[in-house]
Design a protein around this nucleic acid. Structure first.
Length: 198
DNA sequence: TGCTGGATTCACT
DNA sequence: GTGAATCCAGCAC
């Protein structure tokens, strides 16, 4: 399998890209441990017209990552506990990003269980943005990591046969964004238990 | 320099 | 179903 090039992430339509990312393989190799999983759930965030995006009308030290060229990991801490993993997209100055919310484990499942303190495999292993980051070993230190490097990357995995396989709906946990919270910018794979919420 | 609250999860009632 | 855990960026003084 081949890593997706940085140019993949630099496409301009972040919503279409979030949809396209469903079914790709997310791989990490951290401290010599390789793990991978199929992306089953994503959310798109647009820096220019979306109040839910951290970079919306705010250009700060934290959001600076999103203003760079697409193809970087944007990792940040939520509720003081959970590292949420995003992928920046689009060109420089275009602060778009895609939040990866859930994966279906493929390789290194035993390492994911160890990181998550689990004794059995089930959907709670990697469904939900905080759980997924922990299972894959992604931490704040990976903020700004390039996705064509040797720590975190994406690969082609399976092709989505028809549009019916992907469900689009509203995003989660962003009520503060007013009417932008109603945008149908969350995508997930139909018929997989590995999603955070129905 | 100090305070506030969040793209959540998990354990417990 | 509810609440606690927990830390740092952002913004107000």
């Amino acid at each position: 399998m081949k890593k997706l090039p940085l140019s993949y992430y630099q496409q301009t339509d972040v919503v279409a890209l979030a949809r396209d990312m469903i079914g790709k393989l997310l791989c990490t190799e951290i401290n010599g441990v390789f793990t991978s999983g199929i992306i089953t759930e994503t959310e798109a965030y647009n820096g220019r017209c979306d109040a839910a995006c951290h970079a919306y009308k705010r250009r700060t030290k934290r959001t600076e990552i999103m203003y760079q060229n697409g193809g970087l990991a944007y990792v940040y801490l939520c509720y003081g506990i959970h590292s949420l993993f995003n992928i920046t997209t689009n060109a420089e100055e275009m602060a778009d990003a895609i939040l990866i919310r859930a994966i279906e484990p493929v390789s290194g499942v035993e390492h994911m269980m160890e990181r998550r303190n689990k004794t059995s495999v089930n959907k709670s292993l990697s469904s939900g943005p905080g759980s997924l980051s922990k299972a894959m070993g992604i931490e704040l230190a990976h903020n700004g990591e390039k996705l064509d490097g040797n720590s975190i990357w994406l690969e082609e995995y399976r092709t989505i046969e028809s549009a019916d396989e992907i469900v689009s709906t509203t995003r989660i946990g962003i009520d503060y964004a007013g009417e932008d919270a109603l945008l149908p910018w969350r995508f997930y794979l139909k018929n997989t238990p590995y999603i955070s919420k129905k």
